[in-house]
Design a protein around this nucleic acid. Structure first.
Lengths: 192, 192
DNA sequence: TGTTCATATGAACCATTGTTCACATGAACT
DNA sequence: AGTTCATGTGAACAATGGTTCATATGAACA
């Protein structure tokens, strides 16, 4: 069942990416092996290397794809939002919902934490998300909606909260919380 | 048997554990190999297997040791604290400081997230920590210090916050926050 | 029809690694 | 002295896995 033209090539590449995402998500990078990926994609091992330089290349392609996707979604969600409360609500809700409904993508980038390669790309992504939160808080303070505070520091905390949520998706469902409860805590605090 | 080299034996075991903690922390479980551990401990590969059944046994011994240690520290810190604000302050401060000053131990248990073995032990540990936070909040609500809320849900959120902090220790120093700022957010929220 | 080349194959290569085992050592005890 | 046994050695085994390469196929085109 082999077609030998360009069309077939890109189709195959897509199939490989799709299957690889599943395998990496289930086994993690180290445990995933090229034979399994090739078999699942209905291609030979050697065939993989026609489309990707090596295992690392395959993984990084997937990860960049994921990060781009969520960046785009976030931009869309916050596009016309100028109210700080609404903005922070959108961001938290979007993040929580994305993580819940895209477990595979989350596993892909979060399964192994201490990766050497790919870490820089991820870090840049994280930094951008912190900056986004910081802007919202800074705006809220400027508009007199939020208390006066250090936006950068508070942004790190809210970012950590979402980071923790993502980890819970990976290893510990029981610790997952609802977006509304989270917003209530962030906005109002525990005190009476 | 009270035979001679008993002394030497326990010393060696201690040395192996110490070195293994470093190696696992640096390379993660999958990437760490028994030859490196043995070499660093100044013992032969075969020697390792006199003290530990296998690689997994060695790793689990270390992890249990770590979890026991932090459990003990937490109990000590909260022993005579009956004021909810003081309690939550102690817990957050302790968690943040422990993570900062025991990076190696954090790496040990957090480097690879999706482990099959060891996951149950960790989950039990996490559950206990959530329960601890929940109790503090419940107490705070009962005493009229905290607003009326769902303590279990709010506990998950604070737990996630600390979980995120731990991840930042592992991969992303820039996202680390100060305990006081964190407490300020948890207690007072962002709103004016 | 014959040539070309993108696409595809999978056995083989090579390095790595957890684990075992036959064997060594030396202190304690008889 | 000799025996015992905890402690220690490292070559060898077996399994795994990333990568390469000689080889094949067939669609497109001359």
């Amino acid at each position: 069942m082999v077609h030998m033209n360009n069309r077939s090539g890109t189709e195959t590449k897509k199939r490989i990416l799709q299957v690889a995402a599943e395998v990496f998500a289930e086994y993690g990078y180290a445990e995933a092996n090229m034979r399994l990926i090739s078999r699942s994609a209905g291609i030979s091992v050697g065939g993989l290397y026609l489309y990707f330089k090596d295992k690392e290349d395959l993984y990084l392609t997937l990860m960049n794809e994921s990060l781009d996707y969520i960046n785009q979604k976030t931009r869309d969600a916050l596009k016309d939002t100028h109210d700080p409360i609404e903005a922070i609500t959108s961001l938290i809700t979007l993040s929580v919902n994305y993580a819940k409904t895209n477990r595979e993508r989350i596993l892909l980038q979060g399964r192994e934490l201490g990766f050497s390669f790919g870490l820089e790309v991820k870090k840049k992504f994280f930094k951008e998300r912190r900056r986004l939160i910081e802007e919202i808080i800074r705006d809220g303070v400027a508009k007199g909606v939020f208390r006066s505070c250090d936006p950068a520091e508070k942004a790190k905390i809210i970012f950590s909260l979402l980071r923790g949520f993502v980890v819970s998706i990976i290893i510990d469902d029981e610790a997952l919380f609802a977006a509304e409860e989270c917003l209530d805590l962030i906005l109002n605090g525990l005190l009476k």
